[in-house]
Amino acid sequence: MNIFRLAGDMTHLMSVLVLLLKIHTIKSCAGKSYPCSLCFILLESSSGISLKTQELYALVFATRYLDIFTDFISVYNTIMKLIFLGSSFSIVWYIRRHKIVRRSYDKDQDTFRHFFLVLPCLLLALIINEKFTFKEVLWTFSLYLEAVAILPQLILLQRTRNIDNLTGQYVFLLGAYRALYILNWIYRYFTEPHYVHWITWISGLVQTLLYADFFYYYFSSLKNNVKLKLPA
């Protein structure tokens, strides 16, 4: 474990916590009387969260952590896997099933057919992988899928007029975690002999590059102290 990877895991954890906080805010909103302005904004405007991206991430974790009970790495590793699995599936459940939260989900805007991402990633994983075994192919599939899983969310943000802070921070943290992982891979390449994982490195690089324009608008909105807005 190195500082880059720990920082990456903590950033990833933060992104999940921000999303859970946002869902909690929406839930607690419904109990209050209506005049509360925050509630009005939250419940009237769409939450800006893409269910498609959340479903893709649940699939990413389900296919990546198949070895959670067979290969024990460390207590930290197992606990983090359980947190990511538990949070991703419960977020999908909230947006799909929870009577309040699902009202803030705008399915007319979140129209990305994520099936078109799953199939190519699966085919690619069958062709390009480190070892042609069931677990390894699904693990590689989870890497390719994670690289593109943010697309429905980024497209939804372009369509969302006012992106609220929590959503912007959620996407930023999600992009930052993989950028920190790239530093971790560079560090491990120079400190561990024979540590070479081209598939992981390239997917991680593609994933981070997909956030490039979001990062640009995110930082310029911070610098100019204006609301985050993505060009359509």
């Binding site: 070895d67 290969d71 990511f84």
Partner: peptide, 10 residues
């Protein structure tokens, strides 16, 4: 035999 390279990253 050495067990297959377990993926130690999340």
């Amino acid at each position: 035999i050495e067990d297959e390279a377990a993926h130690d990253e999340l």
